[in-house]
Design a protein around this nucleic acid. Structure first.
Lengths: 214, 214
DNA sequence: TTATACCATGAACTAATGTTCTATGTCAAG
DNA sequence: CTTGACATAGAACATTAGTTCATGGTATAA
C-alpha cells in the first residue's frame, strides 16, 4: 500500500537523522519534526512503516529502529588513484608509473573493488565518439587482453594514438566499435593494437555552467 | 595514549553491535558484553574513549554514541533517490511524484549535497548527442530556470519530447547546443521550452562485456 | 609512608523513551 | 443511518538507560 505524506516524511527524517547523528531518533524526536504531538501516533505510523517493510523495529528498546538496506550498506567505499590526464594521442599511463597524488572515492554499488583500478581525467574531445567528453573521469582496469564487447583503451601503433572503443575479435582482424551507435567501426590488424585497459566507469560532473567542477 | 584491553573490547563491541542492530548499544549492554557489572565503569571508559577520539557521545541521550570513522563516514555520502527510467519522448518525472524505492550513493567530492537532486536511468540511445548512453545514470537537480551554458533537460512542447542540451538564451530565441561539439545546435522559441532540471552528473557503468552492470 | 592517578563496584537518582488506553473525527461501505 | 477501518490527540504508565556519588582496590612516584 502507498505511504501517506506523513509516513514518507517520517522515513526521510529517520534517514536524515541517522546520517547526522549515527543513531536513530526517538519517537518524540520524530513527532517533533513531522508535527505530531502524540507519541502514540508516531508509534502507530512506525507500525505501518514496519508492516510495509520500510523500517525494522526492536520493541521496548530506545531508538530501536533500523532502515533495512539503508545505512548498514553505505560504509563501503573504494579508493581509486587518480593518475593524471590523458589527451588525444597520449598513451594511457600505466598506474605504477606515477605516484597517485589524488584519489577518487566511489561506493561499491557503482564499482566493485578489484585489482588494477585507476582513474584518468580526459582532456579534450578526442574521445567524443566513445561518448566521453572533455573533463570526464574514466575509471580503468589495467589489463592487456579483452573479451569481445568490452570497452577498452587501445593504443594504435600505426596512428600513434589511443582510442576508446568496444573491441571485437573477428578472425584475422579486430573490429573497434564506437560506443555511439551512429558511428562506423574501424577494422585493424591485431599486431597493430595494444590493449591498455578496460573502461569500467565513466563519470561526468557538470557544474553551474555545464563545465566540469574543479 | 594506548587503550586498555577492556577499552579495545568496548570499541569492538560497539562496532559489532552497530553493524548488527543499526543503532548503538546502551551502557548496560556494553557492560554485559565486556564483563563490567557497573554502568559507571562503562561510562568511565566511554569517557576515555571519547577523550581519545575513538567515539563521540551525546550526553543524556540514550544510545548517544557514534564511531567517527565508521558510521560517521556516512556523512561523506549523499543519497539520491533513483526515480526510475526515462526514454525518448518521456517527460522527466518530478521527484515528488514517486516514492524513491532505490537510492544511489555518491561521495561528496563527486557531487555536493543540494536540494532537489534525483537520479534517472536512461533507456535507449535517444540522448546520444548529449553523450548520454543507454543505461547511463543521470543525476538531475530539479529547477525551472537555467543559466547560459548549463546542461539541462528541456521539454519541447511542439515535438513532445525531452532532450538534454546546453542552453543559451539569445534574445528572442533559445539555442540548444548538443554536448557533442560536432553536432549543430537547434534554435527554439522560449515559449516552446520547458526546463525540467539541470544535469549534475552522468555515470556510466560498464560491465565485463561493455554492457551496464545490473 | 603518603599522596595521587587510575580502575572498578554498587546503589540511588533522574531523565529519556517506549507502551497503552481512552476519546475524537473522517470517510467509505453496507 | 450505522458500522468499521483508519488517522489522530492526550495523558498516564512502565521501563530503559544515562548520571552521580560514596567507596575501595591497585599501582607508581615522591
Amino acid at each position: 500500500m502507498a505511504l501517506s505524506e506523513r509516513q514518507k516524511g517520517i522515513l526521510k527524517f529517520i534517514a536524515d537523522f541517522m546520517r547526522r547523528h549515527g543513531y536513530p531518533p526517538t519517537i518524540r524526536e520524530i513527532g517533533a519534526k513531522v508535527g505530531i504531538s502524540s507519541t502514540s501516533v508516531v508509534n502507530y505510523n512506525l507500525g505501518i512503516l514496519e508492516r510495509e517493510g520500510h523500517i525494522e523495529r526492536d520493541r521496548e528498546i530506545s531508538r530501536g529502529l533500523r532502515l533495512p538496506g539503508g545505512l548498514a550498506s553505505l560504509s563501503d567505499l573504494i579508493q581509486i588513484p587518480l593518475c593524471g590526464r590523458i589527451a588525444a594521442g597520449d598513451p594511457i599511463p600505466v598506474p605504477d608509473d606515477i605516484f597517485p597524488t589524488e584519489t577518487i572515492e566511489l561506493t561499491r554499488d557503482i564499482l566493485k573493488e578489484e585489482e588494477g583500478l585507476y582513474a584518468l581525467e580526459v582532456k579534450g574531445d578526442s574521445m567524443i565518439d566513445a561518448l566521453v567528453h572533455d573533463g570526464d573521469i574514466v575509471i580503468m582496469k589495467h589489463q592487456n587482453e579483452a573479451e569481445n564487447g568490452e570497452m577498452v583503451a587501445v593504443w594504435l601503433r600505426d596512428r600513434g594514438e589511443t582510442t576508446l572503443k568496444k573491441i571485437y575479435h573477428e578472425g584475422q582482424r579486430i573490429r573497434l566499435q564506437p560506443a555511439n551507435p551512429l558511428l562506423e567501426p574501424i577494422y585493424v590488424h591485431p599486431a597493430n593494437v595494444e590493449i591498455q585497459g578496460k573502461v569500467m566507469v565513466v563519470i561526468r560532473r557538470l557544474g553551474a555552467h555545464g563545465e566540469r567542477v574543479a
